[in-house]
Amino acid sequence: MKKVFLSLIFLGIIFFGFAQQDQKICLLVRADDMGSFHAANVGCIQSYHEGIVRSIELMPVCSWFPEAVKILKENPGCDVGIHLTLTSEWSNVKWRPLTHCPSLVDQDGYFFPMVWKNENFPPCSSISESDWKLEEIEQELRAQIYLAMVHVPNISHYSIHMGFDGLDPKIGELVDKLAKEYGLEVNTEGLQYFVGWGKDIPIEQRIEQFCENLEKLLPGKYLFVEHPAEDTKEMETVGHPGYQNVGKDRGEVTRVFTSEKVKQVFQKKGIKLISYSDLKE
């Protein structure tokens, strides 16, 4: 009888712990596209050191990957994900695959700009318009995973650049298979998307809108994804048809992520910042 009583107490403590967790507001703030530009590398790590970012996504195919690796090695406490990439969207800078995959590239050997057909781009500018081969996608994704994990051993997860895994169920199944094989799976069940400011909010009003939306959060687990960078001369050259003010846009993301006003709302509401590593644990 005594053992039964003690077991009930133990189960009660566990249940109380879970109940307490359910009453918390947990927010995973993810910074995408580290490695794409020097300005992105600076913005991502600044948002981690001085702001609310806890997970950073690394792009192995990009020009500034070596610098990103150096920065991340200097910050071993930062949660890192592999940002798998099969597109090269910007007009003035292009990325190539790590492997020979002719069905995934244009006539110059660069990744196509888009995943799906886009009216802002000429015909045949997307993966969806190509005769893509699943085996080529697999070999390329394996190469990206390998390169990232060799240089940043503490990688915990993966993410998808521009959502190419939704192009076809076979691609989604392939990505799931690779995640299991390389130990990059994360249980995101119950993780809800948080709308920080929405598409129609002027850049200058983002901090205010972000704070207002944080105030409305109810207990639960949330994910917010954005692309911090510095607004520099380098970023003035970055853009594509339909999206030209990239430097200003992403510079404002960094401002939001490092805002003292935003951090005060976190403290006031008791919002807990989490990472993908936390979800794995």
Rank of each mutant, 00 (worst) to 15 (best):
3 K>H: 12
3 K>W: 11
6 L>E: 15
8 L>D: 05
10 F>A: 14
11 L>F: 15
14 I>M: 08
16 F>V: 15
17 G>E: 07
20 Q>E: 09
22 D>M: 14
23 Q>L: 09
28 L>F: 00
28 L>K: 05
29 V>P: 00
30 R>A: 02
33 D>K: 08
34 M>G: 03
34 M>L: 06
35 G>F: 04
35 G>I: 00
36 S>P: 04
37 F>L: 15
38 H>K: 14
39 A>H: 02
39 A>W: 06
40 A>V: 06
41 N>M: 04
41 N>K: 03
42 V>C: 00
42 V>D: 01
43 G>V: 00
45 I>Q: 00
46 Q>C: 05
47 S>I: 01
47 S>K: 03
49 H>F: 01
49 H>Y: 01
51 G>M: 03
53 V>Y: 00
60 P>N: 05
61 V>K: 06
62 C>T: 14
62 C>Q: 11
62 C>F: 03
62 C>V: 08
64 W>G: 10
66 P>S: 04
68 A>Y: 04
68 A>G: 03
68 A>T: 00
73 K>T: 12
74 E>C: 03
75 N>M: 00
76 P>A: 04
79 D>Y: 05
81 G>Y: 07
83 H>S: 01
84 L>M: 11
86 L>C: 11
89 E>Y: 11
92 N>S: 14
93 V>F: 02
93 V>W: 02
93 V>C: 07
94 K>A: 09
96 R>A: 06
96 R>H: 00
97 P>H: 06
98 L>C: 07
103 S>A: 06
107 Q>E: 15
108 D>T: 12
109 G>R: 01
110 Y>D: 08
112 F>A: 10
119 E>Y: 14
120 N>F: 14
121 F>N: 07
121 F>T: 09
122 P>A: 12
128 S>A: 12
132 W>E: 03
133 K>H: 13
133 K>W: 13
135 E>C: 14
137 I>H: 01
139 Q>C: 15
143 A>R: 08
149 M>K: 15
151 H>K: 13
151 H>L: 11
153 P>C: 10
154 N>C: 10
156 S>C: 12
156 S>M: 10
160 I>D: 11
169 P>M: 06
169 P>T: 06
171 I>L: 06
172 G>F: 13
176 D>M: 09
178 L>D: 02
181 E>R: 15
183 G>P: 08
184 L>S: 08
185 E>I: 09
185 E>F: 11
186 V>Y: 12
188 T>W: 13
192 Q>T: 06
194 F>W: 01
195 V>M: 13
198 G>V: 02
200 D>A: 10
202 P>N: 08
206 R>L: 04
208 E>M: 04
210 F>H: 03
212 E>S: 12
217 L>I: 04
219 P>C: 10
220 G>P: 03
226 E>L: 02
226 E>G: 01
241 P>I: 06
242 G>N: 10
244 Q>F: 11
245 N>P: 05
246 V>L: 09
246 V>Q: 06
248 K>Y: 13
250 R>H: 03
252 E>Q: 14
255 R>E: 12
258 T>S: 04
262 V>P: 05
262 V>L: 07
272 K>P: 00
273 L>A: 04
274 I>A: 08
275 S>F: 06
276 Y>H: 09
280 K>I: 02
281 E>Y: 05
